[in-house]
């Protein structure tokens, strides 16, 4: 009941999905996929979202109660969460409302800056990791420099052939390496899927009894 039935659902459901991939019959392609699996999957999403939010809120609540390290900042989590949620539910999600205003002028600038911040960290990590200590590292460094320079105007100023070389790197050695890796990943994915379908891999069931 606790582990066997979920495992049977995965095994039987997995076999049906496998059959779906090879059968063009409308019962599989229309009824199973569009009338059963997709609507059922969508219906399960809202409770999963609620679980994530409750879990995160509980973590912040415990942090405040225990006066853990940097507990004061957890209030900002609740402030942001409660304000935008109330704005969305009470004021609506249309453009011009508080919900979209907070998204456009607070959430979006902050998340874009977070990703932009990574440019600095990638540059410093690259400096530490890519110092041409071996021939392989030198090749990696050269490929990265050529691809980067080819995308900016100064690259074509240095050499008019740089964009062509960059394109060749992307189309030939890069393609070959990605294809080799993809074949390996594909084989690994198939092996893992088979292990789950046959009930050998059960880590998705979690620990406990």
């Amino acid at each position: 009941m606790k582990k066997t039935i979920p495992m049977m659902i995965v095994m039987i459901g997995g076999l049906i999905w496998l059959f779906w991939a090879f059968s063009p019959h409308y019962i599989m392609q229309e009824d199973f996929l569009y009338k059963f699996y997709i609507p059922w999957s969508w219906a399960m999403i809202p409770p999963a979202t609620i679980l994530g939010i409750i879990s995160l809120s509980m973590m912040h609540k415990a942090k405040i109660q225990r006066r853990a390290h940097k507990w004061q900042y957890s209030f900002f989590f609740f402030a942001g969460f409660i304000t935008i949620t109330l704005a969305g539910f009470l004021g609506g999600t249309q453009k011009g409302g508080l919900y979209m205003w907070m998204f456009e002028n607070m959430q979006m600038p902050m998340s874009a800056t977070m990703f932009a911040l990574l440019a600095f960290y990638m540059a410093s990590a690259a400096y530490k990791a890519f110092r041409a200590r071996s021939p392989e590292a030198t090749v990696l460094l050269l490929a990265a420099i050529i691809v980067m320079l080819a995308q900016v105007p100064i690259g074509t100023r240095i050499s008019k052939y740089l964009p062509d070389i960059s394109q060749w790197i992307l189309d030939v050695p890069n393609l070959a390496s990605k294809r080799g890796i993809m074949l390996g990943v594909g084989l690994g994915s198939i092996a893992t899927s088979l292990k789950i379908l046959l009930g050998i891999e059960r880590s998705y069931l979690g620990g406990g009894d």
Binding site: I45, P46, T49, G52, I53, L56, Y73, S74, F76, F77, F78, A79, G80, F81, I82, T83, I84, T85, G88, F89, T93, Y99, M102, F103, M106, Q107, M110, S111, M114
Partner: peptide, 17 residues
């Protein structure tokens, strides 16, 4: 922390609608 709160609230409202 504000970004996390805003992102979670945004996705909650979006999931609802």
């Amino acid at each position: 922390q504000l970004l996390v709160g805003l992102s979670v609230g945004y996705s909650l409202v979006l999931t609802y609608h």
